[in-house]
């Protein structure tokens, strides 16, 4: 696609949000970085522009306008904040792709706070019934974005959603960041994907991977 898609990253100053922003700046996207309540995305935008002089990136301080301008909205915010944000952007996110990256881990990182018959992504879809919610980036650590190749293998990034065109667009976006995009299935597959990250977090803590771990489906 030649026409630049506008991607708004809500929560762009967090670990995941800034890692996604830096990676996407290499692609054919126009990035709007939303500042948080206590911090601005100005310095991140400046840093990205200095590293990628051709990048079209700017900070913005209103989530409503950022979502209104967007073709794709990335919610790089904790699960607990998604509900309030969905209320704010619902009207302008109508029919748009909204990427849910959140993992609903509990406070002690040993379980999920959602019940087994749902997921963070499906709950977001309920809050944004006319948006195309897609699960992506939730099975990667923010540290992976610097180095998506682990043990000589390009790590997989799983994607789940119910709209085929949205899945393909998000797949392109994931590929830009250097991961191998793998469409896992419908949005309900997010239950498994969110569980997979719980497992990876636990293994990371137990085996001291130092956040240098990721998923790869091996096949012949």
């Amino acid at each position: 696609m030649q026409t630049k898609q506008t991607v708004s990253i809500i929560g762009s100053t967090g670990n995941m949000g800034s890692a996604i922003a830096r990676s996407l700046a290499k692609g054919n996207y126009r990035l709007l970085l939303l500042s948080g309540p206590n911090n601005t995305a100005d310095s991140l935008a400046d840093e990205i522009k200095s590293l990628n002089p051709g990048a079209e990136v700017e900070s913005i301080d209103c989530c409503y306008n950022a979502s209104w301008e967007a073709d794709i909205i990335i919610l790089a915010i904790p699960f607990g904040e998604e509900f309030a944000m969905a209320e704010k952007i619902r009207e302008v996110a109508n029919q748009k792709i909204v990427i849910s990256i959140a993992n609903p881990l509990n406070g002690t990182y040993d379980g999920l706070s959602t019940s087994p018959d749902t997921s963070a992504a499906e709950q977001l879809q309920k809050l944004l019934p006319n948006s195309k919610v897609v699960k992506a980036f939730n099975t990667s650590f923010s540290t992976n974005f610097n180095q998506p190749v682990l043990a000589g293998k390009q790590t997989d990034a799983f994607i789940a959603g119910d709209d085929e065109e949205a899945l393909n667009l998000v797949s392109d976006l994931v590929e830009t960041t250097g991961f191998n995009p793998l469409i896992a299935g419908p949005l309900s597959m997010s239950r498994t994907l969110e569980g997979m990250q719980l497992l990876l977090v636990q293994l990371n803590i137990k085996n001291e991977y130092n956040w240098q771990a990721g998923w790869k489906i091996l096949h012949n």
Binding site: T3, E69, V92, N94, P129
Partner: peptide, 18 residues
Amino acid sequence: KSYLTPKKLRKKQYLLQA
């Protein structure tokens, strides 16, 4: 309304490229 996509464009921004 449920099927419409609201969108803002800045001056000189492309909606579509050939």
